[in-house]
């Protein structure tokens, strides 16, 4: 039994949130983790600087950090980099929203209807074996090289994991929760909004997070092949013109965006799960 419940036995709770503050040892471990998270990029940058100073490699290959920084500032202030960024992020969020919508609808439907499950799920399991990037050539032939193909690819990369997460979320709802709703004759819509949605939300949100990370990777890969703007296209152009500094900036930005998206999502996840605390097993 944890200390939380011991406190609870002796006095009524009016402020349950106060009990959720992590105990001291946990906070220490958390601080250590934060320190490591800050240190590791610093170590990487210092190592990179030393390597570029060593003269073992030509400056075109191991571009010195100050040159990278200068290129970054130039491309940022001349508006090219922001354009690439808005291009990529616009596609990402557009495709993601479409994919998430389709995924949630299909997954939930499969979760609540045995018939939908029987028809749709086998197809999903086959599709899952197929990496989205392997579909890029086929999709280009079908949708051309315009914006559509990238939206479709992102939507596809999103819809699949989201649908499976929504499905698992609904399937994983303890039977007695639904029994309780039926016993008290809760109307179907209220059952959906007050039981099915909050009960499956934690699993769904996890699926939404993995889907976002995956869609970002798929989008950058697609932009390498077909795009006239976007981070992927910028890197591809840098490769063709042998501007390794541009390529590297693209790599760093791709990583940073992936990282930020994930962090942002985790924050959102914490916010959501605060409202839907899971019962202890």
């Amino acid at each position: 039994m944890d200390d939380g419940s011991v406190i609870l036995k002796t006095r009524p709770v009016s402020e349950p949130v106060a009990l959720l503050a992590p105990p001291a040892p946990e906070r220490k471990a958390w601080k250590r983790q934060r320190l490591a998270a800050v240190l590791s990029p610093i170590i990487l940058i210092v190592g990179w600087t030393l390597l570029s100073r060593s003269g073992w490699f030509p400056a075109e290959i191991v571009v010195p950090p100050e040159v990278l920084w200068k290129t970054f500032v130039t491309y940022w202030s001349n508006g090219q980099l922001p354009d690439h960024l808005t291009g990529s992020l616009g596609r990402l969020f557009g495709g993601y929203l479409i994919g998430a919508g389709i995924g949630i609808a299909l997954g939930t439907l499969m979760g609540v209807s045995k018939q939908a499950e029987a028809y749709v799920l086998p197809g999903f399991h086959i599709m899952r074996q197929l990496p989205t990037v392997a579909l890029i050539p086929a999709f280009i032939m079908i949708f051309g090289v315009g914006e559509t193909v990238k939206l479709v690819l992102v939507a596809k990369a999103t819809a699949l994991p989201v649908a499976l997460a929504a499905f698992q979320g609904v399937k994983g709802i303890p039977r007695t929760w639904l029994d309780v709703a039926r016993i008290h004759r809760i109307p179907a819509l209220t059952q959906f909004t007050h039981v099915i949605v909050p009960a499956s939300l934690p699993v769904l949100v996890q699926g939404l997070r993995t889907a976002l990370a995956r869609s970002w990777m798929v989008l950058v890969a697609a932009e390498l092949l077909v795009a006239d703007s976007g981070i992927g296209q910028m890197m591809e152009w840098g490769r063709q013109t042998f501007r390794l500094d541009l390529v590297l900036i693209g790599v760093v930005i791709t990583g940073l965006i992936g990282f930020t998206l994930d962090k942002g999502f985790r924050a959102l996840e914490r916010l959501l799960t605060r409202g839907s605390r899971r019962q202890e097993a």
Partner: peptide, 30 residues
């Protein structure tokens, strides 16, 4: 099911995102 028959399970089956008061009140929705 009908409201003239109630049921209690081995697992309390409270909805974890609702407070005690909300859980009890949930039975009166209909």
């Amino acid at each position: 099911p009908s409201l003239d028959r109630g049921m209690i399970f081995q697992d309390p089956s409270l909805l974890p995102w609702m407070t005690v008061r909300e859980n009890v009140a949930f039975a009166l929705v209909n």
